[in-house]
Amino acid sequence: MLTKPKASVILLSIALIYVSVLIFLPSIFIFYEAFHKGIDVFWNSINQRNFWQATKLTLIVTAITVPINTIFGLCAAWVIGRNQFRGRTLLLSIIDLPFSVSPVVAGLAIVLLYGRNGWLGGLLAGLNIKILFAIPAIVLATAFVTMPFVAREVIPVLEEIGEEQETAARTLGANDWQVFYRVTLPNIRWGLLYGVILTNARALGEFGAVAVVSGSILGKTATLPIFVEQAYKNYQAEAAFGSAAILALIGALTLIFKEILETRTHH
């Protein structure tokens, strides 16, 4: 009686059409384009040396970045969620910075720091350590853009559970490590896992920053997202969509995980 059904249907339709055209249809299209000619075509399109190299590189970079950023995220979350100090808001904003800085600018900053004339570039060149256009730079760029995720997810959980349980554990004789391992970690585990999954998704998929620092050399320094772009540019649309479908599948799995984790944390 109070909600006019007609208006509701119109509003609902507008929203559904908008999201379908803008997001849903393109997402379906990735899989359509990758698979509509059959699984063999899909397989042949991606079964090439450059693809496997890109996959390997992407996995290596992710395997390095995710654990490091998880440890950092936990430490940062503890510093911010368990301490009151001047500059706390500032620190929080700094941790958030990678969300607002353009990935290209992040890549540029790394190039300037580690380049031949950069502060660290000359030093490392003297030691014969290659950073730019190699795995170290890709890791640094990926670490830069994925830095905030774990801390961002863990801080609110940490603040919500409060310090009481930890204090209680301490009064029962637990040391700091025991408090963390037995009390804090079980409480924050879903938030932490969610943060790790987001970090993982972004690390696998980062394009802009990696494109700047890696040189995008196919078969050498191209990660999977870069392989997608390069294949498209080289008129290998099938290879581009084949690898895009794999990345999109990982994205879809991430969203499903997210859904599961959200239902867990809310009940």
């Binding site: 999201v19 997001i23 849903f24 393109p26 997402s27 299209f29 990735i30 384009e33 998704a201 696998l204 998929g205 980062e206 394009f207 802009g208 999977l224 997202p225 870069i226 997608v228 772009e229 498209y232 649309a237 581009a240 969509f241 895009a244 990345l247 999109a248 994205g251 879809a252 991430t254 969203l255 499903i256 997210k258 859904e259």
Partner: peptide, 20 residues
């Protein structure tokens, strides 16, 4: 869930599909 797809999909994949 669909709303979050732009967060979850690599930008190059988004560019590829939008361009096509």
């Amino acid at each position: 869930g669909v709303i979050d797809i732009p967060f979850a999909v690599p930008t190059s994949v988004a560019g590829l599909v939008l361009a096509t």
